[in-house]
């Protein structure tokens, strides 16, 4: 049967009722189509805020995949995602178990892994009547995955939950499992960066990584090197000033590992970006984020790396 998933969705949402197709028939058709669908993705959330998932939903592009729905319908089989999936309870846990058996499946991890209290600061689900900690879930599922994508700082490097004093002994996926991970840095990452990484994996392409596990194509240059305010003589000396370089106010764009193409791609369909709103860059792609330096120099003193 030569029908694409997109065709199927149109069929499912628009034509089925008119054609008198029953819900059960539509579902049977869907099942058949699934066998030919994109690679299975298992998306786990741990010590996170769901901000990476929310950012993913903001994807919009003139090239395919055009938006988040396009990704879900035409690019991947999102077998497990706690915020989006219809299934709950053991139906959801079974979906995760089935996904981990799918050949070539991708594990996406959002959130760090608390290891204090024997992992009991975060539970993933219950299985056979026992609470499964997030630490156990990641340890198990990481082994079977063809690739592990860490979206955001928490799964990639520990992020804010791992900031001093790291109250729940949060670890990154790599720290916990020792396995290589593709780190889509950012707090949250730009949706384009997440979609680009998944699309590359689906296409079977090699993804060169820097020493922090970040795709070099996405994290090639410092934010400062691409900043339209870089060459400006005018420096903002106080908040409330418009248009100047924000370095004296605490901008982390010049930090050596604050990398990403945000000055070019901006955010939210190019509505704006941090420095465009006269707000200092928070350095959220820096593996050391959030660090212990103040984010703002509210009295305008200079900041160092």
């Amino acid at each position: 049967m030569s029908v694409t998933r997109r065709d199927f969705l149109k069929y499912c949402t628009a034509s089925a009722a008119a054609l008198g197709i029953s819900a059960a028939e539509v579902r049977a058709l869907a099942k058949a189509l699934l066998n030919g669908g994109g690679p299975t993705v298992l998306w786990l959330q741990g010590s996170s805020c769901s901000g990476c998932s929310v950012s993913f939903l903001n994807h919009v592009a003139s090239t395919t995949p055009h938006d988040a729905a396009d990704v879900l319908i035409n690019v991947i089989n999102l077998a497990y995602h706690p915020t989006l999936m219809a299934a709950a309870g053991d139906t959801a846990v079974a979906a995760a178990a089935a996904a981990s058996l799918a050949p070539g499946h991708i594990l996406v991890v959002e959130g760090g892994i608390p290891t204090a209290f024997a992992g009991n600061a975060c539970w993933a689900w219950s299985e056979n009547g026992a609470d499964v900690t997030f630490q156990q879930a990641v340890t198990t599922h990481a082994q079977a995955a063809a690739a592990i994508v860490c979206v955001g700082q928490c799964s990639a490097y520990g992020g804010i939950p791992a900031a001093p004093p790291n109250p729940t002994a949060v670890q990154s996926v790599k720290q916990l499992t020792g396995l290589p991970t593709i780190n889509v840095a950012g707090c949250p990452p730009h949706p384009d960066w997440m979609v680009w990484t998944i699309a590359k994996l689906v296409a079977g392409a090699q993804i060169p990584l820097d020493s922090f596990g970040r795709p070099t194509e996405l994290y090639a240059k410092r934010v400062h090197d691409q900043c339209p305010r870089k060459e400006k003589d005018e420096e903002a000396e106080s908040f409330g000033e418009h248009g100047g370089c924000l370095e004296e106010l605490g901008c982390r764009g010049p930090w050596s590992q604050t990398k990403g193409n945000c000055p070019k791609v901006k955010f939210n369909d190019k509505a704006n970006w941090c420095i465009g709103a006269d707000a200092p860059c928070q350095g959220c792609t820096n593996p050391g984020f959030p660090g212990t330096e103040p984010f703002f120099h509210e009295e305008g003193e200079d900041g160092d790396d």
């Binding site: 699934l34 995602h81 989006l84 079974a94």
Partner: peptide, 9 residues
């Protein structure tokens, strides 16, 4: 829609 993440349900 009849495919993941909306199925199973």
């Amino acid at each position: 829609p009849g495919l993941p993440p909306w199925e199973p349900s």
